[in-house]
Design a binder for these strands. Sequence first.
DNA 1: TACTGTGAAAATGTTCACAGCC
DNA 2: GGCTGTGAACATTTTCACAGTA
Lengths: 252, 252
Amino acid sequence: MATGRTHRPATRSRGIPEATVARLPLYLRALTALSERSVPTVSSEELAAAAGVNSAKLRKDFSYLGSYGTRGVGYDVEYLVYQISRELGLTQDWPVVIVGIGNLGAALANYGGFASRGFRVAALIDADPQMAGKPVAGIPVQHTDDLERIIQDNGVSIGVIATPAGAAQQVCDRLVGAGVTSILNFAPTVLTVPDGVDVRKVDLSIELQILAFHEQRKAGEDGGAAAAPTPQAAAAAADQGPDGDVPAVMPA
Amino acid sequence: MATGRTHRPATRSRGIPEATVARLPLYLRALTALSERSVPTVSSEELAAAAGVNSAKLRKDFSYLGSYGTRGVGYDVEYLVYQISRELGLTQDWPVVIVGIGNLGAALANYGGFASRGFRVAALIDADPQMAGKPVAGIPVQHTDDLERIIQDNGVSIGVIATPAGAAQQVCDRLVGAGVTSILNFAPTVLTVPDGVDVRKVDLSIELQILAFHEQRKAGEDGGAAAAPTPQAAAAAADQGPDGDVPAVMPA
DNA sequence: TACTGTGAAAATGTTCACAGCC
DNA sequence: GGCTGTGAACATTTTCACAGTA
């Protein structure tokens, strides 16, 4: 039953700290924007502002990649775009499958940010036979029955799970069985995977809960901070709306 | 123009560390599942497994909230559900607006995980006049023109931005101007906000990029770790698909 | 006995501040 | 002069290991 670990790759990632890796895509985006405006060089101060971090952190981050800057001048935008892309593995093509083509899956399929960074949506997979053949974002949806074949035919190593929570673990097992070694999970469940498989999780309601925590702090306690006005007392009838996608409730 | 900081609340959150706050929703979900199965008590070991963390971390996390367990026995599930909910501020009703009802916005509106945790979608807002009046997830979409009124009428303090990147900052400014103090941003842009406003960011393509980084590591280097088989050589024709939402694409 | 709660150690991440170089 | 690169100080987070207790 594999003592499934989540997150944290086994591969200590050579020298680059996780926290730095997590920021590289941020820098890359900021750099890409500069590149589009044909800006030739940028200082750590400017780039940091564009990426929303402070400049000391940025410089330290870059120092793990090597010495790609020029003292007194800054960083060459194009060169840095290339170096970071290479470091992140974006100079190669990553075929990706999306499983679960509900609202969220469709949104993901349409999301331009994937195609624009070396990721290619190789297939869309759904358990509903009604969906089979229907094009979403120009790609025909295929049935779950063919999951293994699709993975293998396309050499897919990254899978995205956008199914309801109840189906996620089963889909995950099949993806892993077929050779997928990285999973991006949108279903609100903890996935159990064998060692060597990375799982990253995006949970919409968790982010909101964290915001609520801080929001509560602003209003409550004493008059510490400022800003927040009344938290409105409408703390009443919270109709438990119908579950659209993701049920949030484990099947038991 | 406010030297907009992102993330990290100003309010040092009494004693509870950020890292702990970020895990509370995880514990809450696991506990809710146990509660539904009428499990009366749970040990740190069991709960930690269900939440995907290790037990020492969980105990330390709970120790910041107080001593809610019983030595030799474990934690009372119902009691803990209540305590964590209260700590997160989920015992009150949080009206939320979603701005940008494209694919992603619709997915969010339909997402059951919101309603099930004290969050109530108070309104859907879109800039497209064609959308106005159309119901999405049973809620009629309203036009951006009415944004300020909607925020104030509903006492909204949390806003979700699911617009294209280009519109995000403008929407953000209007939300903040109307009194919103917490923002969940799905647009791939760094938002600038005044002090006292919290921003959390969910970026789909960033998560994939982090996976790609580790995926690359598994394949490359030498035969350090195990698991990962062939990374398939399909590194060829990556047709730069059309941008659905979000921009990007390196020019060079 | 079987568990929690927590100090203390270790690891990781951030910031400071300045030497070094263009 | 202006900026990078980085040791060293500081801060946060994780883990260990065990005392305390129902």
